[in-house]
């Protein structure tokens, strides 16, 4: 793999520039549509776009910038889980003690964000081997975004999954119906406020069965 070897070593400083350039061309085309971005040099690019520019971004990426390869669409619920972390590891219990119950502030991740729900998608350019993650904020009272199916047909199933798991509606989607869950299922399991019942109905037997180590009492007192 001599050819890949050389390109790889030369590419590491160069890709950064390439990503900046890519970001510049996205910004140039979408203008106000781009509301945030983040570059990890030599590694990755995040672009946060306005909700109205979501479909245009896909068109731009596919037709002009050569991002033919569709990777996935999914969503993030940025609200910290109101049920704590429902952890089962003893380590965690010992370290953290009693878990905080009061709601914690919402913190968004890379490339920023304003709202609780964020839809993100990833597409790749198989020629330049660059990938880009596109994010879009959805207001809490209107969880809707345009579908990507006309541009990337592969988005179909990913959007169905996202719809049933997060309750995010993709307007213009050809058949928004359940994909994994039974048809009569209610609720959106991947939302943070949807309890993982297995953790609440029955405690993890691993915790119950652990006997107190000699000396544990002394530490606690």
């Amino acid at each position: 793999m001599s050819s890949a070897d050389t390109t790889e070593e030369e590419a590491v400083p160069a890709t950064d520039e390439a990503r900046e350039q890519l970001l510049a061309s996205i910004t140039a085309d979408l203008g106000e549509g781009v509301v945030g971005s983040h570059i990890r040099p030599g590694d990755d690019l995040w672009v946060r776009v306005d909700r109205d520019a979501w479909l245009d971004t896909a068109r731009l990426l596919r037709t002009k910038l050569g991002f033919h390869y569709f990777s996935f669409i999914s969503a993030i619920d940025w609200m910290p889980s109101p049920y704590g972390r429902s952890m089962d590891s003893r380590v965690d219990l010992v370290l953290e003690g009693v878990e905080a119950e009061e709601p914690q502030p919402i913190e968004q991740g890379v490339a920023g964000g304003d709202t609780r729900f964020q839809v993100f998608a990833r597409v790749n350019n198989v020629v330049t081997n660059m990938g880009v993650t596109i994010k879009v904020d959805l207001p809490d009272d209107d969880l809707r975004v345009t579908t990507w199916v006309p541009v990337y047909p592969g988005a179909n199933w990913h959007e169905r999954e996202c719809w049933e798991m997060f309750g995010i509606e993709f307007t213009g989607h050809p058949g928004l119906r359940h994909i994994y869950l039974p048809g009569a299922f209610e609720g959106n399991p991947m939302r943070k406020d949807y309890p993982l019942l297995a953790r609440h109905v029955r405690p993890w037997p691993g915790i119950v069965d652990v006997e107190a180590m000699p000396g544990d009492d002394e530490v606690k007192s």
Binding site: D88, D92, M190, R199
Partner: peptide, 12 residues
């Protein structure tokens, strides 16, 4: 479907 994405959120 085993819901791995949800389950990973409660595991180290």
């Amino acid at each position: 479907h085993r819901g791995y994405e949800k389950l990973t959120e409660v595991r180290t």
